[in-house]
Design a protein around this nucleic acid. Structure first.
Length: 388
DNA sequence: CGCACCGGGTTCTGCCATCTGC
DNA sequence: GCAGATGGCAGAACCCGGTGCG
């Protein structure tokens, strides 16, 4: 999957380079509405023709069409942009092209987040520099903008961005953490500093409430284990904490370990989804003759079980049970649930073929990489099989 | 060498709602 | 009353390999 994505990225990079070679830089003469480098939003417009309300900026429309922007989509998303008298699309496009973005990528960015054309070059340069403090290359940033234009363009407050970076560093997150955070959840950085601070404070409060001695470490651990936590509402995380507390009835120190350990990854789930999964897991466990304590043990040792939707989980469990594995074995080695039902099914077939005995050998063989599993099967295959 | 334990990697936007300031 | 800024939501797993031990 990751390889596929990487390949696609390479292909699109290649495509964009080809495009630039074919068309050269700035292929069309755009109608200038604002000279590059100047701030365009504030203007008296005294001797300019007044644009009445509901009239769209004609030159903007023309430029966007020339740039290949999906104007229909853009208009649907942010109609206000089209009524602005002064916009900066030409300079914005030039800026992005200078950073290595292809024309296609630029068009995609503006189509999805039209307000980008209202940003000044100065502002963009500043913001780009701040991102470059975290990313090593422009290409990385372009890839993020292509993926999520809104994360970069939604806020015009570079000071806020600076505050966020300083704040995250002050939490003890290292360069690698910041890099992962910005690459994975770029929205974190356009949150208001205050919002991020509130979440961190909230996490620290939970720690203190549970009798933890190092709230800062606790918050940092959760953030670095769950990069999405800062783009969730405190309401959601709080609800999830409450749900888990109420249903698992663990001791305070067990809860602390759970939240700052593997359980961090399920704190940002939609609360309804978490509740639903918890409930259906309970139902399933009961139907398999397990007790409450078994489920508790399962969730504590492998919280990601709550990440799996009811249908998937049920199918997966049945698949294992039908393959001759016991519930007890699954409870002992829950990591087998990590693997897709499809993968498990195929492995069970292979193991059956070579006469693998789960009672004797356990089920660890299912929790291994494809390479290792295949090597294992190879070793277990009895005869050298000279004839085909 | 084979195995179990364990942690890490990948991944998450695009839309709507609500405020705020002019 | 507008556009801009910001908050919040739904959606829903899978796989790999280092390491240390026997």
């Amino acid at each position: 999957m990751a390889a596929l994505r990487g390949m696609r990225a390479l292909l699109s990079l290649h495509r964009s380079l080809t495009l630039q070679r074919n068309f050269g830089l700035i292929p069309v003469q755009l109608t200038s509405t604002c000279s590059p480098g100047r701030h365009c939003s504030s203007t008296t417009g005294s001797d300019e023709p007044k644009q009445s309300v509901n009239t769209e900026n004609e030159s903007l429309l023309k430029n966007l069409n020339l740039m290949g922007v999906d104007v229909k989509m853009a208009r649907r998303r942010q109609p206000g942009v089209f009524r602005k008298v002064f916009t900066n699309e030409q300079a914005v496009a030039q800026f992005l092209q200078g950073k290595g973005a292809s024309l296609k990528v630029i068009a995609g960015i503006i189509s999805r987040y039209p307000r980008a054309v209202t940003r000044s070059t100065d502002h963009l340069e500043q913001r780009w520099e701040l991102w470059r403090n975290i990313f090593k290359t422009d290409a990385e940033i372009v890839a993020i903008l292509d993926r999520s234009p809104e994360s970069f363009f939604r806020s015009s407050d570079n000071g806020n961005l600076e505050k966020n970076i300083a704040f995250l560093i002050s939490l003890g997150l290292n360069t690698k953490d910041l890099h992962r955070l910005l690459a994975t959840a770029p929205r974190t950085f356009s949150n208001s500093f205050e919002l991020n601070r509130q979440m961190v404070e909230f996490l620290e409060d939970i720690c203190a409430e549970l009798g933890g001695t190092n709230p800062e470490q606790f918050a940092k651990a959760i953030i670095s284990r769950n990069l999405y936590i800062l783009i969730r509402s405190t309401k959601r995380v709080k609800t999830n904490v409450d749900i888990l507390r109420a249903s698992l009835k663990l001791s305070n120190s067990q809860l602390l370990d759970l939240f700052q350990g593997p359980g961090a990854e399920i704190l940002d789930l939609s609360s309804e989804y978490l509740k639903k999964n918890l409930y259906s897991l309970q139902q399933k466990m009961v139907s398999l003759g397990c007790r409450k304590a078994d489920m508790k043990k399962l969730v504590v040792s492998y919280p990601l079980v709550l990440y799996i939707g009811p249908d998937t989980l049920s199918t997966k469990l049945d698949c294992l049970l039908n393959g001759g594995i016991t519930v007890k074995q699954i409870l002992e080695k829950p990591k087998v649930l990590d693997y897709s039902t499809q993968n498990i099914t195929a492995r069970l077939v292979e193991l059956k073929r070579v006469g693998y005995d789960f009672r004797k050998n356990g089920i660890n063989v299912l929790d291994s990489s494809r390479k290792r599993f295949e090597a294992k099967i190879e070793r277990l295959t009895p005869s050298p099989d000279v004839t085909d």
